[in-house]
Amino acid sequence: MSDAEVRVEALGAGDWGGGSLPYAVGSKKFGMWLFIISDALTFSALLIAYGYVRLANKNWPEPFEFYPSLVTATVMTLCLLSSSLTMVMAVAARKREDRPATMKWLWATIAGGLAFLVLHANEWLKLIGEGMRPFSNPWGSPLFGASFFTLTGLHMFHVVTGVCFLGVVAVATGRGKFTSEDVEMSGLYWHFVDLVWMFIFPLVYVLSIHHG
């Protein structure tokens, strides 16, 4: 048997030889990374579609005012970025086996996500009040509203999912369940949601500011 072991080492040595994790990353984390890649492609396709229709339409509106639209969006960005920071802290705490601190940081992250959602929902209501619909808007090409609601809506859906996910992780952590890899995996997802916003913010908001 030991002879066989030696031969295996000789034949299949290294990360790709089997019986090991080639990336030194657990399956859950790696699986989440793959999910993020595919989800990133969904968002990429949608953003490219947005660019495509925007380029093809001469009457694309730029209705947002610097204040309040961009300022609100900036505050929302701040919420997401800060929640990412607290998430990093939660992951680090969980790695130190410090469960109370993990929970504290996780709830802070959830709070950041909820703040984002509240601000965003408020903004949607305001825009709907101004007459913006998926099929029309008072300012120009109807695709402005369509792509705005599609992109931010799908992102919002991701935030909602993330908040629920983090809630589950926080509760489970409180009960002494879930490994550090589980927390890290939820963190990856949360940062990804943040990352997507880093593209939606400039493309949808900054580039739609009304020229003075």
Binding site: S84, F192, L195, M198
Partner: peptide, 17 residues
């Protein structure tokens, strides 16, 4: 804007993720 976003994304991926 896209350059800035790519830098931001890279920072998030490199450090936070």
């Amino acid at each position: 804007l896209m350059s800035l976003s790519v830098i931001k994304a890279a920072l998030i991926m490199a450090y936070f993720m």
